[in-house]
Design a protein around this nucleic acid. Sequence first.
DNA 1: GGATTCATACTCGGATATTCTATGTCCGAGTGCTGAGGG
DNA 2: CCCTCAGCACTCGGACATAGAATATCCGAGTATGAATCC
Lengths: 166, 166
Amino acid sequence: MQLSETVEWGLHACLALAMLPDGARIPARALAEYHGIKPSYFSKAMQKLVAAGIVQSTEGRSGGLAMGKPAEDVSLLQIVMALEDHQVLFRCTEIRQKGPCAAASRHYRAPCNIARVMRKAEAEWRRVLAETSLAELRQSATAEPVPGVNEATQTWLAETGAVRGT
Amino acid sequence: MQLSETVEWGLHACLALAMLPDGARIPARALAEYHGIKPSYFSKAMQKLVAAGIVQSTEGRSGGLAMGKPAEDVSLLQIVMALEDHQVLFRCTEIRQKGPCAAASRHYRAPCNIARVMRKAEAEWRRVLAETSLAELRQSATAEPVPGVNEATQTWLAETGAVRGT
DNA sequence: GGATTCATACTCGGATATTCTATGTCCGAGTGCTGAGGG
DNA sequence: CCCTCAGCACTCGGACATAGAATATCCGAGTATGAATCC
């Protein structure tokens, strides 16, 4: 039942993108290297975020990735769902309607009670993720920075010339 | 990220066990057939519940499965966790500590903010599941029965002689 | 000097392997029933 | 008639295949760049 590891990648990548200056873009390859991730598979995760409109991709020689919308409008739920193909955690296959003692399907209008509780729990999970925006994470990251990381990042970006755009 | 299908099986199976008379037991094979499930893999799920103490198994010729503790003391969370090997949904691999700009690990005493939100959401999910007991599900099932199913079940149990014990 | 053109380097995106987990199957060890045999 | 005992049918539990998803890799299509060329 584990979430895909791409979820972790995507969340950190989006946070990094949200911390760049407005309009700036960075190649997927550099973004992967920055996080110590193999770039090949990482790009697949980014593709899903691009398809969802969360991230914007620019092709061409000085292309790269950038936020597709303001960080305030991106919730963690959007990112997770995009990366997990909008799947649900618990899938009810209506096994109550199977087996030798099941009634005709028209008698099962009320939803399965087990599925109902599972969905309720899932809704709470989603609620927390929906309530947290990327902007809040960015706020925390800038308010309580890890010593040295921001400076090292600026240096690294300048040295590698990874950031393009405004 | 889907939960295993065995979770659905286990939940329905536990509910069925909880609706049997006190002390009664039923073979895993019959319980699988009742739900229209292939018995071979179903037994693997039951093994996990037995190991967790939720279900009790009796060997021998007239053996079978029974509840291991009162339905009031069994939450849905216990069942789900037992079947999913107590895994967590989101696994933080601390990628913030990787890459060329990471600081020394002693500077990362505060937990990762992304992981914190994910864990908070997961805690809410667990909370709902922990708040619901098997006894509540049994209550709903007896209060709003699907027409004919209970009768058919009694008949089927009598015909097949699947129920043993007091 | 300035505009144009063209080769180029670099980007994303999808087609293609490989590994790992979930699912499915099977058979052996163990245990309580049951019926025969003896007292 | 009642007790003993051995055979047996049936149970669970774990070892062994298979299917599907997640992970990892590679190469091709497309585009902005920038140098070379011409006016």
